[in-house]
């Protein structure tokens, strides 16, 4: 394995967060903070537990709007299809946004359907009707996450029968099947064993060619292995942090 021999070259800005404030249940999580996130890079978000890292991710796909008692202030702009867009503008469709900004959660969250349906589900939601296209894309994506050989004979079986690591990879396939421009991951490997976690890390490193990745992580060694830049969230502020040890 040859991890990351090429140096990290800062490219254009993918996500720009300006004057972001956020509170949940009356508790202030973000306080008037601004930061930019580069394109085609893996940015790790670290910070003390309970500092609101997961919540911060949800401000980027507007998922917090589905939770009760949240308020937000400030601007989030994302470069989508080459155009910089304010994602909270009234003319920005929230569903379209979430199709361009994928998300993977901490606990694998397969829906109670078959493996095939799980992975094909976002396509179906997006209105894809062509059975052949769906089949092809599901196969491609499952191959991409290295799950195809394990599951090709039981695509119709329940997704709940997969192991934890397999479930999480399936969820990643599900998040990637629409080929999003940004992938948000909330401690995707924290519920998995070492081997499964490494498989996921390799995937992320490969995916950053065509995707901007933000990952919340508790594990500093994991951060060191894969992150191009590190952002710390503490006391309601987002700050760029030097990557502790230079990578070889």
């Amino acid at each position: 394995m040859q991890p990351l021999t090429q140096p990290f070259i800062p490219s254009s800005v993918k996500i720009r967060v300006s004057n972001l404030s956020f509170s949940y249940n009356g508790r202030e999580i973000l306080r008037d903070t601004s930061l930019e996130f580069p394109e085609h890079a893996i940015t790790a978000i670290v910070g003390p537990s309970g500092s609101g890292k997961s919540t911060f991710l949800m401000t980027l796909n507007r998922l917090w709007e589905e939770l009760p008692q949240c308020t937000m202030g400030g601007r989030v702009e994302i470069l989508l299809n080459g155009i910089q867009q304010n994602i909270y503008a009234p003319d920005c469709g929230v569903e379209a946004l979430r199709r361009r900004v994928g998300m993977v959660f901490q606990m694998p969250n397969p829906l109670p359907m078959s493996i095939f349906k799980n992975v094909a589900f976002p396509l179906q939601l997006a209105g894809e009707k062509d059975k052949n296209v769906i089949r092809r894309r599901v196969e491609e994506t499952l191959q991409d996450v290295g799950l195809w050989d394990d599951v090709k004979d039981r695509l119709a079986g329940s997704a709940l029968s997969l192991s934890g690591g397999q479930q999480q990879r399936m969820c990643m396939a599900r998040a990637m099947i629409l080929r999003p421009e940004i992938l948000l991951l909330d401690e995707p490997a924290s519920a998995l064993d070492q081997k499964a976690a490494e498989a996921i890390e390799q995937l992320l490193v490969r995916w950053k060619q065509n995707c901007t990745i933000l990952i919340v992580s508790h594990y500093l060694d994991q951060v060191k292995r894969i992150a191009d830049s590190v952002v710390e969230l503490q006391g309601g502020q987002l700050r760029n942090r030097q990557v502790a040890t230079p990578r070889v």
């Binding site: 979430r98 199709r99 994928g102 998300m103 829906l111 939601l125 997006a126 998040a175």
Partner: peptide
Amino acid sequence: QNRLTGLAMGA
């Protein structure tokens, strides 16, 4: 969690 899963996919 179940509620957010679908929505996060753009449902």
